[in-house]
Each structure stands twice: as C-alpha cells, then as structure tokens.
Amino acid sequence: MNTPVTPSPTAPPAVCEQRSITVPPEAGANLWQPLQYGRETWQRIYFRLRNSVEGINGFAKDPLHEDLESSGTRRIRGIAAQTILLAFQLGHANRRKLATWADTVAIDGDRPRRRPTRRRETKPLGTWTPKGYVTP
C-alpha cells in the first residue's frame, strides 16, 4: 500500500513526522525475505557468507602483509586520509588473494604453478637412530 506524499512548503505530511509504523501480519511483514530467518536454508547460506567475510578479514589482518588491525601502518591524521589508505590496503589484500588463487589454476592446458613448500627437508624415519644405538 503506497501513501501519496505531496510536498508542501508549510509543513511535511503527517506520515513523514511519525516515529513508527505498524505493518499487519496479513501484509506479510514476517515473510518479506526470500529466505525466512532462522530456517535451515537461511543458516546454510548465512554462515557460508559469514565465513567468507571473516576469512578475508583474517587474510587482510595478516601482520606480515597489510596488517589492517594495526593503525600504525597508516601513520597519517584524519578520517578521510585513513579511509583512503585503508582502501589501498584492502585493494592490495584483494590483489594478493587473487594472485594466490591464479597460481593454482591451470591455464591453456599447462600445469598450475607450484608454490615452494614451507616445510624443511626431513630425513626418513628409517635412517634415524637414537644416540648410543649401533646397528650391526
């Protein structure tokens, strides 16, 4: 139901001045969302989206890269300047995330580029002997 609002030079209409409205249940006030709040399908989609948002937040807060959590990485005064620098940091985090993903994708039938392993080389378990033990 639409309420016609005609501009007036003297005072706004009453509908613009009231503090609250009441939507009756027959108007579908509790079912206007495509997924009803709290249902199984809503939870599955909401938590998947929530996990992805929290994942990118953790990625951008990495202290070895952008370190968004520390305001010391943006040493400048003013909300506008801080916001612009934060936008650049988020842009860099997104670019880094996309580059990492692109390295794992096979392009034109080639194998994906492998990232170097972070583990150090270890000896096989069969070659290790405790101190003082002599093999025959």
Rank of each mutant, 00 (worst) to 15 (best):
P112Q: 03
G78M: 08
L125Y: 11
R48W: 15
I84T: 06
L85W: 13
L31E: 15
A106V: 09
G91K: 14
D103K: 14
V105G: 00
P9I: 02
R50L: 13
E17W: 00
S71Y: 15
C16P: 01
G72I: 07
L49K: 08
Q18F: 06
T129C: 05
W42K: 04
L98S: 13
I84F: 11
P7Q: 07
V5T: 02
R19F: 09
T104W: 06
T127S: 15
V5E: 02
D108T: 04
V53Q: 00
V23T: 11
T122N: 08
F59C: 04
N94C: 14
T41I: 07
P24G: 05
T100G: 10
K123E: 12
P25S: 06
A29R: 14
V15M: 02
Y133S: 00
S52M: 10
G38K: 06
K97H: 09
Y133T: 02
R39V: 06
E17D: 06
Q33V: 08
L64M: 05
T100Q: 09
A99P: 04
T129I: 01
P24Y: 07
G109K: 06
V134S: 11
A27W: 09
Q82H: 11
E121L: 03
Q89F: 10
G38V: 07
G72M: 07
T6N: 05
M1I: 12
E17G: 04
R115G: 09
G58T: 01
Q43Y: 03
A11H: 00
E40N: 07
A14V: 03
